[in-house]
Simulated scan of single mutants.
Amino acid sequence: MAQSIGHLLYLVFYVAILVLCVWALVDATRRPAGGFVAAGKRTKQFWTWILVAATFLALAAVVGSGIPFLGFLTLLAAVAAIVYLVDVKPALGPSGRGPRGGGPRRPPSSTGGW
C-alpha cells in the first residue's frame, strides 16, 4: 500500500514537471527571436531546444516511471523550465522585446497634466 502511494506521488510530481516544461516551451516558441538577444539572454533556438529536451525527459518520466535514473533527469528538466520561466521570460517582457516590452519610448510630456 505504501509503495503504491509512493508511486502515485512520483507520478503526480512527474506530471507537474511535464506541465511546467510544456508551459515554458509554448511560451518560448511564441516569443520573437529578436527579443531574446535584445534582453541579453541566449538565442531563441537555444532555449527552444533546451525546453524540447526537458519536455521529452519529463514525458519519458511520466510514461516510464519505473526507470530509476529518470527521476534525476526529470529534476534537470524542471530546473531548465524554471530557469526559463523565472529568469528569461520576465526579461523578455510582455511582448518579448527586452525589459518592459521594448519598443520606442516617448519622453514624458513637459506640458503638465496627467
Rank of each mutant, 00 (worst) to 15 (best):
A33W: 06
A33K: 14
G34L: 10
G34N: 05
G34E: 10
G35C: 04
F36C: 02
V37A: 10
V37E: 14
G40K: 05
G40D: 09
G40M: 09
K41I: 07
R42W: 02
T43H: 01
T43V: 00
K44T: 00
Q45S: 09
W47K: 00
W47G: 00
W47F: 10
W47T: 00
W47D: 00
W47E: 00
T48P: 00
T48R: 12
W49S: 13
I50T: 11
I50E: 14
V52C: 11
V52W: 09
V52S: 07
V52I: 13
A53G: 12
A53H: 06
A54T: 09
A54P: 03
T55L: 02
T55S: 13
T55F: 05
A58V: 09
A58P: 09
L59C: 08
L59F: 09
A60M: 12
A60D: 12
A61L: 06
A61F: 06
V62H: 06
V62G: 08
V63P: 03
V63H: 05
G64N: 15
G66N: 10
G66W: 15
G66Q: 12
I67H: 12
P68I: 08
P68E: 11
F69C: 10
F69G: 06
L70H: 06
G71M: 01
F72P: 04
